[in-house]
Structures are given as structure tokens and as C-alpha cells.
Amino acid sequence: MKKLCLKVTAVEQLSPLVKRFRFEDPTGATLPVFSGGAHLTVEMPEGDTIRRNSYSLISDPYDGSAYEIAVRREDRGRGGSLYMHTKVSEGDDITVSLPSNLFQLDLRARKHVLIGGGIGITPFLSQLRQLDMEQKPYELHYAARSREEAAGIKLLPQAAHIHVHISEEGSRMDLGAILDGQPLGTHVYTCGPDGLITAVADQTARLGWPKAAVHSEAFTAPPPGEPFDVVVKSSGKTVHVKADQSLLEALEAAKVDIDYSCRGGACGRCHTKVTACDGRILHNDHWLSDDERAAQQDIMPCMSRFKGTRLELDL
């Protein structure tokens, strides 16, 4: 996979939990442009493991001078966001992937409605710049619990079609009011907690929206969990997965050859066959179907974990 070795040129605390990072090419070279909604995978080397998390790009997609991301500190995560918050500062080197997009705008839409909850505002920050350049009609709704937590406010332009909903201030987002009466040909995009994505899906179904007009960004960082072991079929080798490591990260550390892209259970690239399973796979991805999950013959190593006595992978 092609990688970019960049320099951290700015770190800004946007809210108590969210920091903004700016990356530039050390020689001043232009970075590849991208499309609204794209993300980067950031490498975080620590000890013998390289942790990799994907973050939405929040900068202008057509501006090749820098890439920017915003990271929310998750104190109960695997440690990726903590690493970004505590170990990364201005002047550091950082290795990232090229931009990749699993949450692109459907440019067929007559109008775009963007709904972001909490840190889920991030993919929309690049999308709205693309929509401005394309001169497409859109409205954006940003929901947060409190103004203090609403890191996105500092990054959003002030405009009549940008709506901020702060539930603590009594202006809770009313999805029914937002979605009812939108013109035919409108597409809606949601990014945020599962509850918000489900609520938008339910509301649009009630209102008779076509499914193809309802989009959501589902991927998140892999969750930590109890440690477990897996067996690699080709070599017979046992690989130990630590509590704060994903299965994919453990396989990579053990030099097992495995493909990946999003590292968030959305792209399907690391899809692996299970050749023996005595126990229960804890599926955390958005890629496998319900039937595939139940059959326990497939696993997405970037997100999913295992509880049981033996798990053998076709690698």
C-alpha cells in the first residue's frame, strides 16, 4: 500500500476532548487531492506494534498543501486516539495512507442533507467544501450535547443552511422536521452514533424515501476486548491478540500477510475465511451479512474478536 511520510505542522485543541491535526509534505510538495468524505489511515508505532486508525479528512479536498483531521480522545479505546492526543505534537513525522473514500457524495442528488452527531461531523467538513465548489444545494445539521463538546462549531462556516442543534440548550435535533418535505431527489447522509444512524434510517423509511438515497458512515475504530489466540492455517502458528490490539494488528505484528484498507469494518478488504471455530466470533464490522455472521465461517480481522477455545484462519 502506498504511504505518505508527512510532518505534523499544527495541533489545535478544539474542545476538551477533540484535537485538530495538520499534516504537510516535509519538502512542500503538493499532496494528492481527494473527494468529500474521504479518510486517511494514520500509523501509530508503539513498541513492537504499529496501530493504524482511520480518520475523516476535514480539510479542503482540492487543497493539496495539507491534510487535516480531527481526533476525539477515547479513554476506553485501544489507545489510538490517546496516542494522537498525548504523543503527537508539532514537528513530528507521521506516516499516513493516501486518501480513500467509503462515504462519497452521490452527485446525482438534487439536494444533499448532511446530519452529523458529535465527532461524526468530521466527514461533512470536506463534503460541504466540495458541495460549495460544485454549487449544489445542501443543508447541514450538527447535533451535540453541549456547546463545550461541540468541537465542530469552530470548523463550520456561519451560513443560513448550517444548523447547529445543542440538546443542553433545548434545541434538540428534530429528524422528522428535517426530513419531512424535502424535495424529490434529495439524498441524506448521516455520521455519528449508531442510534442516530438508525433513527435517520427509520424516519426516512416512514417517509417513503428510496433506500439508495439514504447514506451513512458506519466505520469506527476497532474496540478493545479480552485477549485471545488465533491459529494461522498455512503455518500452524499461534498468534496472541492483546486486549488493546485488534486481530489485524496482531496478525501484522506476527508478519502474517494480510490485505486491508479502511480498518473500520466497512471496505471488505481484510475479509478472511475461518477454517475452524470452537467458540464465538464477536463480529464488530459492517461488512458481513447477518447470515454470514451466524455461520461463523468468515471474519473481518480489522474489527472483530473471538471468545472460545480455538479459532483457525485461512491465511
Binding site: M1, K2, P32, F34, S97, L98, P99, S100, S261, C267, G268, R269
Partner: peptide
């Protein structure tokens, strides 16, 4: 199709 959908920028 699976391969094509996974083709990334620069590859």
C-alpha cells in the same frame, strides 16, 4: 467487482 471497489488512489 470486489477488487475494483477496493482500488485506491495512487494504485
Amino acid at each position: 467487482l470486489k477488487f475494483l471497489l477496493a482500488v485506491g488512489q495512487g494504485q
